[in-house]
Design a protein around this nucleic acid. Structure first.
Lengths: 154, 154
DNA sequence: TCGAAAATCACCCGAAAGGATGACGACATC
DNA sequence: GATGTCGTCATCCTTTCGGGTGATTTTCGA
């Protein structure tokens, strides 16, 4: 990865030099714009590639920082697992909603949760919708992830 | 690879056409060369960014960048996480499938994963279906849970 | 260079999930 | 008694998922 950046840097520098040289000649020879444009194109294509590499790299960095942050929150491993009641309260998540969330995290479908808790599937959907809203999640996988991040789920 | 070359050719041809067209207009309007150069630059910079993204994407499977920025946590080891390759092999889960699985675990939808990896949503669905089958999961939440249990996902 | 494995994409269909809204009863609290 | 929260359930509608099938392209190793 680093090697690419280096290569592109060198190539870019060379291109700049070539560009300046050729432009100088063009002024003299009164040549057309095509070659100039091509050089600019190549130069900026290389620049774009380099930029693309940088973008992805910085994105990866962020991604891993997030991972570190996640590990900061939960306390050292305990067997019974105590959900973070404080966070639960600040988010306004009720006990029932958290209960449904844990079952969601176990990979159960809404119907399975419903039969498991002896309530209607619609009820589960309502609980889910409210819990997702409070967690800022659009999907159940997202909700599970957030729940784990916040120490609400094991 | 052949398709890439093709795409490259087509995009290049299109760009050339656009450039010629714009150049023609510039000649008429008696505009300066700077604007033309800028246009070329922007176009090829964008193209380069796209190309750069593609390049990095093809290596995402191999990449294992370790960025430990804030290590404030003592006991629990928070490595970049090494998936259990042995289990992965016994289950026959390919690298690409595992890659999609991690994105699923992050709460992304199939469409989001598709745009993130520059592939079709159908492709993601196939990968998911195969991964779920190999994991014995019927839903993505189940797949995520199984993946974590088996040490395939962080 | 041949073939197997992997990756890609498409299409169909049914099921599941999610959003929005309204409603009703129980219960607590003021 | 009014108010508020919580749990329950419903209906309508849209989006997303998952299963199945088939196909092409790419990759990689023998």
């Amino acid at each position: 990865m680093k090697r690419h950046v280096l290569i592109f840097g060198v190539v870019g520098g060379l291109l700049i030099a070539i560009l300046q040289y050729t432009e100088y000649r063009f002024v003299i020879i009164e040549h057309s714009v095509e070659l100039y444009g091509a050089l600019v194109a190549i130069l900026f294509a290389a620049f774009g590639v380099w930029l693309g590499l940088r973008i992805t790299r910085s994105r990866e960095g962020i991604r891993e920082t997030v991972v570190v942050k996640e590990v900061l929150l939960p306390a050292p491993a305990l067997q019974p697992f105590a959900p973070n009641r404080a966070r639960q309260q600040t988010l306004g998540i009720t006990a029932r909603e958290l209960e449904i969330l844990t079952l969601v995290a176990r990979g159960l479908s809404n119907r399975e949760i419903a039969t498991h808790l002896f309530v209607s599937e619609n009820t589960i959907k309502t609980h889910c919708a409210r819990a997702f809203d409070k967690l800022g999640a659009a999907r159940r996988t997202q909700a599970v992830r957030r729940g784990k991040e916040l120490g609400l789920l094991p």
